[in-house]
Amino acid sequence: MDTSQLLKGVLDLAVLAVLREEDGYGYDVLRRLRASGLDEVADASVYGTLRRLYKADLLTSYVVPSEEGPHRKYYRVSESGRVRLEESCRTWRTFAKTMDQLLTGS
């Protein structure tokens, strides 16, 4: 099965999840997603998702000067972002459970 299609639906959730513990800049978020096993995630999708979540006020951002290059924009999960993450987590767990039952039950 093409994982990239599945990813589209849960990328918001995945991005919020990797930012929950620690703030991060764009490339950082991408690296964390890939390190956690989502190695097929496309970088443009991640950057676009970050921008969309930011505009939806689920993320806030701040700029940190960097020693090795241009300053970096860090993202942090906002309060409404945390609420959304919890909701999405519940939805995901129910969905995954249903799919699991469907696949093993048949």
Binding site: A42, D43, S45, G48
Partner: peptide, 17 residues
């Protein structure tokens, strides 16, 4: 690695909504 700039931009904008 990234594909054409146009395809890359298309993916960026669609992910950004």
């Amino acid at each position: 690695r990234l594909g054409s700039p146009e395809a890359y931009a298309a993916e960026l904008r669609s992910a950004a909504g």
